[in-house]
Design a protein around this nucleic acid. Structure first.
Lengths: 238, 238
DNA sequence: TTGCAAAACTTGTATATACAAGTTATACTA
DNA sequence: TAGTATAACTTGTATATACAAGTTTTGCAA
């Protein structure tokens, strides 16, 4: 089915990003948009709520929808984005080195958590991200074989997420993430160009599918000087 | 006005947190909830969408609303929460030391950005957070005098946000945040118990009010071993 | 018993209406 | 002219209906 409100949302995003509605100006009123898109007000409101959630506008009762400067802190790095998508967006000169690709040890804690059946094998993919010739990020990804039956060096060098979504038809839905700062391990020191830094930033996440089943563990270890996390947050009233 | 959908949301949150609906079980169907709360399905859906956005449930078409384990990574530290609220939630043994309280230099970059009128003064509050006897966090907050006419040492020792929202009636709405890792400054070394750590985690944010006006700049400098950022994210389809 | 089609559920989208509540512009009054 | 009340906007909430689309259960037929 054609999702009207999604089309309208995407259309408005395009317009905001191309400055049709500049920062701190007002979007057309809901009634104007309703007649312009030839739809109902509720459908317009669904689109506007998406814009609000994603930091494009602030709705003010009685006034209208103010366009927010979503680029104040440059590019958003929050949400669930794969490295490839990010590198693409930021136009990084990047290279991915597949350090290892195989099955995780059966007794490993992560294996136990990802396994739904004792016979399931768990993929263990370790990759190094080189940016402008420097080894900056060390990524470890764990998948249940049940969802990802086959992984090749080629897929891992390109984009695993692209493979999952476009070839396997998996629908990645939500994630719980944790960011901490740790001492580099021996492995970090060996694989990354740490340049004497005595800390790494570690992002651990649990990724879930559409049907709320746990699907992936990720550990992403960054050289601290190249790390940056950008977020848009709305205050939650209690 | 009584906001039905908000009441229902809060009621369901309470129920989920007290395990009336355990993790990975299904909530009652929208129709059941509709008749239980004696309201319309759309109102129920508004409440459920809030639950979904805040990481309590995952909606599955044709099936129902699955309760998600929102405590996998313990407590959420994302969103916009003041230090006091957080310390309260985590029951930290904490003390706030007001290091300085005054007006920011007129030529400072931040002053220029926060000022709407050349005559506006900008508050500059610098505080140290002591947790279990160790000086862990160094917070710098900047407010426009236009919104916050008076700040006392007492208010800063308690909770500024509490003062803003409950005494001044300001409605904090959204923020753009940035997390990076930096070298400690001389000031950091002097004011914090860095224990030899050679990095600090810096969280900078711009906070906006209800009416989309820029209201506050914040810089929060953490000892890296005590820093932890937890987030719930939904994948945004393009 | 097994397999399969249909029915009975579930959530998702689109529409319409009514009124509440906040903001801005208008027009009238002193 | 200045101030104020009103009207005409704006978004927010609540309700009802209809159908689409996905999942599970039911029950019938082979």
């Amino acid at each position: 089915m054609q999702k009207k409100y999604l089309n309208i949302y995407e259309d408005l995003v395009k317009q905001i990003e191309s400055n049709v509605w500049p920062v701190s100006s007002l979007l057309p009123s809901e009634n104007d948009l309703t007649s312009h898109y030839n739809t109902s007000r509720e459908t317009i409101r669904k689109a506007l709520n998406l814009l609000s959630q994603n930091g494009y506008i602030q709705k003010i009762r009685g006034k209208g929808s103010v366009v927010i400067d979503s680029h104040k802190f440059s590019f958003p790095v929050s949400g669930i984005e794969s490295y490839t998508e990010l590198a693409d967006k930021l136009q990084l000169e990047t290279r991915t080195i597949v350090h290892s690709l195989g099955y995780l040890d059966t007794n490993h804690d992560i294996a136990k958590l990802l396994r739904s059946d004792p016979s399931d094998n768990i993929w263990d993919v370790e990759r190094i991200r080189e940016i402008s010739g420097e080894k900056i990020i060390f990524d470890k990804d764990y998948f249940n074989e049940k969802y990802v039956p086959l992984l090749s060096k080629e897929i891992c060098e390109q984009s695993i997420y692209d493979h999952l979504e476009n070839n396997l038809g998996l629908v990645i839905s939500f994630a719980q993430k944790e960011i901490v700062v740790e001492e580099p391990t021996e492995e970090d020191r060996k694989l990354l160009d740490l340049e004497g830094f005595s800390n790494v930033v570690v992002i651990r996440s649990q990724v879930y599918l559409d049907n709320a089943s746990l699907f992936q563990f990720t550990e992403s270890r960054h050289r601290p000087d190249k790390f940056r996390f950008v977020d848009f947050a709305r205050r939650v009233k209690n």
